[in-house]
């Protein structure tokens, strides 16, 4: 005999809601602390906030001011130099090491961790190590002099025109091993039969890599580019530890600019505007990338 159970049983109904309920604290947290805060900072960038947030709207005045500041332009120029060198050099070193390591190297298991360990360190530690190692008084230059190369000169870290390159050097030291690991994973993911086919087709080693392998690594190049560029824009600690933004303002980057304008110079509106520009730049790189990545996985 059939008795109609029209009311959906309670447990089933509750089961539908539990997941959303349990997820909601995280969602709320992210919505408030990330997106709410972003909106707030964007809002502040249109106000005349100085030491404390103010709610006096000034339109684009902060942006106008920002783009008129020498210090900001220095930071942007530096970021441009730093980011392009950092990305290119890391990619070249990473790819080279990965390809070389992939030649059935004895001791690969020992070399790989050596290339990668800097990634485990704090930028502050990296900065400290390189700061003293590059210090002309006690570091490399001094060592060379002691070894008898009296004319050796390496004082980039103290030189306004060259200090930014020492930041590149330390940053490359820290991350190029990671890029190597990304490329190595890409190389190991290539179907061996494709390579066999190419060799049977008579491809030389050089053209095998140039025509087949490197094009197949496209996804790894893309990932490396995205990760490195976002790290470059966010770079803050390394500069603080290595050069403190100096000599003078020679190694100031947008991240350090934002911090000093907001918290030490009490120009919160301008600082907020600079943060908004940083976010926009990263979003322009990350959003299409993340979108494509998520699309790919159903």
């Amino acid at each position: 005999m059939a008795h109609h159970s029209t009311e959906v049983d309670f447990k089933t109904k509750l089961q539908d809601w539990i997941p959303k309920l349990v997820l909601s604290p995280s969602v709320a947290m992210v919505l408030v602390f990330v997106y709410g805060f972003i909106i707030f900072t964007v809002y502040l960038s249109f106000t005349d906030s100085r030491m404390l947030p103010s709610y006096e709207m000034v339109g684009f005045a902060n942006y106008d001011r920002l783009w008129g500041l020498r210090a900001w332009w220095t930071a942007i120029d530096n970021l441009f130099v730093f980011a392009s060198l950092y990305i290119v050099i890391c990619t070249i070193i990473g790819l080279t090491l990965a390809i070389l390591l992939d030649q059935k190297i004895r001791g690969e298991g020992g070399l790989r961790p050596i290339y990668l360990y800097p990634m485990a360190l704090s930028f502050i530690v990296t900065g400290t190590a390189w700061k003293w190692f590059l210090d002309p008084g006690i570091g490399l230059e001094n060592t060379m002099h002691l070894w008898g190369w009296e004319s050796f000169k390496f004082n980039w870290i103290k030189d306004r025109d060259y200090a930014i390159y020492t930041v590149v050097l330390a940053a490359v030291w820290q991350t190029s091993g990671f890029v190597m690991a990304m490329f190595l994973a890409g190389l190991r993911g290539i179907d061996n039969e494709i390579l066999k086919a190419a060799q049977i087709d008579g491809a030389s080693n050089w053209s095998l890599y140039r025509r087949i392998v490197i094009p197949l690594l496209r996804p790894a190049f893309l990932s490396a580019f995205v990760i490195l560029s976002h790290l470059a824009i966010k770079s803050y600690d390394l500069v603080i530890a290595l050069t403190g933004g100096g000599p003078g303002r020679a190694t100031e980057l947008p991240a350090t600019f934002m911090y000093s304008y907001t918290f030490t110079r009490n120009q919160m509106g301008t600082g907020a505007a600079s943060a908004v520009i940083m976010l926009t730049t990263i979003a322009a790189i990350m959003i299409p990338y993340l979108y494509a990545e998520l699309k790919e996985k159903r």
Binding site: A2, S5, T6, V8, D9, K11, T12, Q15
Partner: peptide, 12 residues
């Protein structure tokens, strides 16, 4: 078995 199961949890 004579019972309408729409809305009934799979385990039941």
């Amino acid at each position: 078995n004579g019972r309408v199961v729409s809305g009934v949890h799979p385990s039941k």
